[in-house]
Simulated scan of single mutants.
Amino acid sequence: MQIALNARVLQAPRTGIGHYLAELVTALRHEPDLELSLFHGWGWNAALPEAAMPGYSRLTPWLRQIPGAYQARRWLEQRRFDNGLPKAIDLYHEPSLWPLAFKGPTLITLHDLTHLHFPATQPPARLKEIERRLSHGVQHARLILTDSQFIADEARQHFSLPSERFVVAPLGVGARFHPRSDETLLPTLRPLGVKPQQYWVCVGTLEPRKNLSLALRAHGQLPEAVRQRFPLLVIGMAGWEQGQFSDALRKSLASGHVRLLGYLPDEQVAHLVAGARGLVFPSLYEGFGLPVLEAMASGTPVILTRRSAMPEVAGDAGTYIEPDDVDGLSQAMARLIDDHVYWLHCREAGLQRAKLFSWQRCASVTAQAYRQAMGG
């Protein structure tokens, strides 16, 4: 079976969808009856592109201001897609938002409905295109893959589609996320002035739905000596300006109690997650919550909210807090610092929970969806 995959998102710095697609393509290559052709936005190639670093922009800021820029780029991409499309393609898989036009069977992955709940996360022109095209793409797809049952149920209700149109393919965890010895962690941690299990980590693009302000405020409630010993490291692409921080948070940044590390290479992120006392993930909305799974697989306890799809990932292995409970989060962090037996229990529970997820399982479910869509 010849599958066309739109891999244009891999030209951008890797966040959730980029990691999903890279891992999925790698795992799908083990399916014996599939052959993949990847569309890179300007041409076709069988190889995965290298991940871009920050500074890449799908549409440069000045170009975003030109009326019709998104439509023009989409038209150009469609022309490139059509001109290079291999003739033997049986099915087209769009892994992000809305598919390009294709005469044969189409399958789409719908990771979440963030644009409905948090429209400010998208540039206005792009949001308009999403609203215009996504509904059409979902309605015409033979099947819709989702990362979680939560998103399948939400999308089914929003788009008024029958449940049989949806296939849930839970994500997996990359091989780089695993427990690591203190000796292997030190080369990464020493330049940052932190020690294994003596810092907290937050992972995610700095945007309001990630609710990282709760983590910053909760960490700020810990005693000064504790904050000094257990700083909070925030990993993610920029989205906030420091001018929006309160005076107390700016003071924490100045003191080193909170550190904004920005976007980091994948291997460095894996080391920092494995070495942390815990992952603080107070997000308001997730289609899956990949950092939660990655932390559990690394032997790092997780504090998270019982929102959207995240309980499907963490199960009973997570420590849950309310998304507006600063005191509750601060107390949960203090317990994981003070109660080593509880910390060990959370670590082991997370390791066992993470074993339920794999990219090969995700690929197997996806491959079966391809076969089902072809039969439909």
Rank of each mutant, 00 (worst) to 15 (best):
residue 2 Q to N: 12
residue 4 A to E: 01
residue 10 L to C: 09
residue 22 A to K: 13
residue 24 L to R: 06
residue 25 V to K: 10
residue 25 V to F: 04
residue 32 P to Y: 01
residue 46 A to K: 14
residue 51 A to Q: 05
residue 58 R to N: 11
residue 58 R to W: 06
residue 59 L to P: 01
residue 59 L to H: 02
residue 65 Q to S: 13
residue 70 Y to H: 12
residue 70 Y to S: 09
residue 71 Q to F: 15
residue 77 E to G: 04
residue 90 D to K: 12
residue 93 H to I: 15
residue 96 S to V: 15
residue 98 W to E: 15
residue 99 P to V: 14
residue 99 P to Y: 11
residue 104 G to V: 05
residue 109 T to D: 11
residue 113 L to N: 09
residue 116 L to A: 14
residue 123 P to C: 05
residue 125 A to F: 10
residue 126 R to D: 14
residue 132 R to S: 12
residue 133 R to T: 14
residue 133 R to P: 14
residue 138 V to C: 12
residue 140 H to P: 08
residue 142 R to Y: 09
residue 143 L to N: 08
residue 145 L to K: 07
residue 156 R to Q: 06
residue 162 P to N: 00
residue 165 R to D: 06
residue 173 V to C: 12
residue 185 L to A: 05
residue 200 W to S: 03
residue 204 G to Q: 05
residue 206 L to P: 09
residue 215 A to N: 12
residue 218 A to C: 07
residue 220 G to T: 07
residue 226 V to M: 09
residue 232 L to V: 00
residue 236 G to N: 03
residue 244 Q to C: 10
residue 258 V to I: 10
residue 261 L to R: 08
residue 263 Y to E: 13
residue 267 E to T: 15
residue 267 E to P: 13
residue 267 E to Q: 15
residue 268 Q to W: 11
residue 270 A to M: 13
residue 272 L to A: 07
residue 272 L to I: 09
residue 277 R to I: 04
residue 279 L to Q: 01
residue 287 G to D: 01
residue 290 L to Q: 02
residue 290 L to K: 01
residue 303 I to V: 06
residue 305 T to Y: 01
residue 309 A to P: 00
residue 317 A to C: 05
residue 327 D to A: 15
residue 328 G to W: 00
residue 357 F to S: 01
residue 358 S to Y: 00
residue 361 R to F: 01
residue 361 R to A: 09
residue 363 A to G: 04
residue 366 T to C: 04
residue 370 Y to Q: 00
